[in-house]
């Protein structure tokens, strides 16, 4: 079936609200998923794989472990990027405004690919940002995404590493942020430890997004039902008393 972006965002907002994400965070989380899907980067697949982690009420809050004038280390304590990265990027943004450029190391953060939508926001707000992370073991992958100040779409590269390569640090991410320097990062073309590499240019993201808007977003009925069921937690049972609040008074 096909759904609209508006439907998707509204439904995902309810889903994340149902997981007790805060106001402000559940809107971000919904748009982080829909941005990936809309721009051809399998947002639904990422979310399906992440469903076990995104409901992270029981996890400790995001914690600032260390900082100096231009750098910081942040621990997400196993939270999903959907429920933590926006805060972290805001911190990077604030530090860059003061220091000119800021470097943050993010630890124990799941589903980091969802950062792409937040990078698009950074560009629109006049900030340049780069994110680098490695992921998985069989096979391991590495990723870099960046955006220049004033741009609407990021540049993204993903490489599959050879079998004997495994990430030194799991669930980490490195962020570099600046309001003075445009950071345009891309994985190098053919290092010896890579099986394959692909890059997506901003223009490709823009074209994919337009095409999706034109025809709607394809989703399986089962997954759509899952999203809707997750959102049912915010709906109130229909009773005769509640009907009175809909016009019967």
């Amino acid at each position: 079936m096909r759904i609209s972006l508006n439907e998707l965002n509204a439904t995902l907002k309810r889903s994340f609200e149902g997981m007790n994400y805060f106001v402000g965070t559940y809107e971000d989380a919904a748009q982080m998923v829909s941005w990936l899907e809309m721009h051809g980067e399998q947002g639904f697949g990422e979310l399906e794989r992440a469903l076990a982690y995104v409901n992270d009420e029981d996890k400790a809050p995001v914690e600032l472990l260390f900082e100096d004038a231009s750098s910081a280390i942040v621990d997400c304590h196993g939270r999903s990027a959907l429920n933590s990265l926006a805060l972290v990027l805001d911190l990077a943004h604030a530090k860059a405004l003061k220091a000119g450029i800021a470097t943050l190391k993010v630890q124990h953060c799941h589903n980091r690919k969802f950062i792409l939508k937040l990078l698009a926001d950074c560009g629109r707000r006049g900030i340049s940002m780069m994110a680098y992370w490695q992921n998985g073991t069989q096979p391991a992958t590495e990723h870099v995404a960046s955006i220049s100040a004033g741009e609407q779409y990021p540049r993204y590269s993903e490489a599959v590493l050879k079998a004997d390569c495994s990430p030194l640090e799991k669930q980490t991410m490195t962020l570099i942020c600046s309001d003075r320097v445009n950071i345009a990062a891309q994985l190098m073309s053919s290092p010896n430890d890579r099986v394959s590499c692909r890059s997506v240019e901003p223009a490709t993201f823009a074209a994919t997004g337009l095409a999706t808007l034109e025809s709607g977003i394809e989703i399986s009925e089962a997954l759509w039902q899952t999203f809707n069921q997750l959102g049912e937690k915010v709906l109130v049972e229909n009773t005769e008393a509640s009907r009175q609040g809909a016009g019967g008074r």
Binding site: V234, L235, V236, E237, N238, A241, S242, A246
Partner: peptide
Amino acid sequence: WYRSQEKQEPRLGGSELDCGRAKQMP
């Protein structure tokens, strides 16, 4: 203010409604 299970219709609640306050819209 909350959303009902019935077509997600927005509704108003008060003390006469014993559930729903925890699910109110912001």
